[in-house]
Simulated assay, not measured.
Amino acid sequence: MAKEQGRKLVAQNKKARHDYAIDDTYEAGLVLQGTEVKSLRQGRASLVDGFVDIDGGEAWLHGVHIPEYSQGTWTNHSARRKRKLLLNRIEIDKIERRVSEKGLSVIPLSLYFLDGRAKVEIGVGKGKKSWDKRHTIAERTAQREVEQAVGRRLKGMSD
């Protein structure tokens, strides 16, 4: 069987970038059971309620829903079990230090296969307040309007 190449996106947490101001991102491997991998290869997962916890010098992914594999038997996995993340010791220490000092959160942003191996992109960031979200939306709208005006101007159209 040919080895998988490239990046295949399984799940993405779009709301995370809306709810959090992401400072740093890290790529981590996942410790999975066989039926979890098969379920992910079918493109089934949800990162909506997920978060990362540092416990005993290890990073754990909580709340990520990977549904049971349909052809699985008694060897099927629990859908919301906690899963160990594979990160370097330096990265774990850096994340733990930032979370404890500044009160930041660590959340999963996307889940994908990279050259046949399951990876999760995690982000360290601070939660936005409702006025922060409105401010971000207003900035994005203003930027879009400026780009449209420049485009019309370049085409010779009047404003």
Rank of each mutant, 00 (worst) to 15 (best):
T73G: 15
S110A: 11
L47T: 13
R41D: 12
Q33F: 15
A79T: 12
E145A: 13
L114V: 06
A2W: 09
R134V: 15
P108L: 01
D159Q: 04
K126T: 10
K102V: 05
E27L: 08
L40M: 07
D55P: 00
I66F: 08
A59G: 05
L86N: 10
K129P: 01
R81H: 10
V150G: 02
R83P: 03
V106M: 02
K119Q: 12
L61E: 03
F51R: 11
R17I: 01
G6E: 11
T141L: 08
G156L: 08
I95G: 02
V120Q: 02
L87F: 05
G6A: 05
G50H: 06
Y20L: 10
R81E: 15
R89T: 15
L87G: 03
W131P: 00
A118Y: 03
R17T: 10
D93W: 03
R140A: 10
V64C: 13
A149P: 00
R80G: 11
S110N: 08
Q71E: 13
W60I: 01
S110Q: 12
V99P: 01
L9R: 05
F51N: 07
D49P: 02
S100E: 08
I92S: 05
W131K: 06
L86A: 09
G127T: 06
T75W: 12
R153C: 10
H135M: 05
I54T: 03
Q143C: 02
T141S: 03
V106A: 04
I90Y: 08
R140I: 02
R152T: 09
K94I: 04
K128M: 01
V31H: 07
K133T: 09
R117I: 14
N88H: 12
Q148E: 08
P108G: 03
D159I: 14
I92P: 07
V99E: 02
R80M: 12
G72T: 14
A2S: 09
K84V: 09
E91R: 02
L85V: 14
A142R: 11
E145Y: 06
H65I: 09
W74D: 15
H77Q: 14
T75K: 07
V146I: 15
K128Q: 01
A149I: 11
G6P: 05
P108K: 00
N13R: 09
L30P: 10
R117A: 11
K14I: 14
N13H: 10
E145W: 01
Q143P: 04
L86F: 06
E4W: 01
I137A: 07
E145G: 00
E147P: 00
G127W: 01
V48M: 11
D93P: 03
K133C: 04
K128G: 03
L87R: 02
G123M: 02
G6L: 04
V37W: 04
Q12R: 14
K155I: 02
G123Y: 04
